[in-house]
């Protein structure tokens, strides 16, 4: 096999590591995107029997944003297996207990239940903040675009940028700004 072909083959079948910043993102919409990378659905060589999925590192999962009043309406069910072992946890409660679980369950539920699902989930690494172990971080070669762009808060702008921001009107001198 020619050297070029060999490299092409490596490049085709290598596992790519992606990083995704989950801050201010809807976990259920993000799950549809992450699933594509985890299962390798974005590659034209995809086949269900062909293990071409990639690794995805998700950072800032503590800062996810659920739509509407989902934090208080969404309920997660768990059963210990013993009689009377059922329990229902609200999303805000679950998020307080483990800030990675809401996103993890969203991704898990977005995929079909088959034997491959649990192995696919092994390739998803979720971190509640932006601190990722260096051993994982050095593999990363691609960043997945956020679904919603993160707006910049006013306190994140410098004084100078605020001053120079184009104004629609000049306020009158005696106008009191609070």
């Amino acid at each position: 096999m020619a050297a070029l072909k060999r490299v092409q083959q490596w490049a085709t079948f290598a596992r790519v590591w992606h990083i995704f910043d989950a801050s201010w993102q809807n976990p259920f919409e993000s799950a549809q995107v992450l699933k594509k990378y985890l299962m390798g659905l974005y590659k034209p060589i995809y086949h269900p029997m062909n293990e071409c999925g990639d690794h995805v590192i998700v950072i800032n999962s503590a800062d996810i944003a659920l739509p509407g009043d989902e934090w208080v309406k969404r309920v997660y069910f768990h059963h210990t297996g013993y009689p009377g072992g059922a329990s229902w946890t609200l999303a805000w409660d679950l998020h307080k207990k483990d800030p990675t679980l809401v996103l993890k369950k969203a991704v898990y539920n977005s995929m079909d239940g088959n034997l491959q699902r649990r192995y696919t989930m092994e390739r998803l690494h979720i971190f509640p903040d932006s601190k990722v172990p260096g051993a994982l971080m050095k593999n990363v070669s691609n960043q997945i675009r956020q679904i919603r762009p993160m707006p910049k808060r006013l306190d994140e702008y410098t004084e100078k940028e605020v001053k120079e921001f184009p104004k629609i009107i000049d306020l009158p001198k005696d106008y009191i700004l609070r």
Binding site: L41, Y42, K43, P44, I45, Y46, P48
Partner: peptide, 13 residues
């Protein structure tokens, strides 16, 4: 379905 998936993946690129 598989062919549709592959075409979608190719288009996305």
């Amino acid at each position: 379905n598989l062919r549709d998936t592959r075409i979608t993946a190719g288009c996305e690129q």
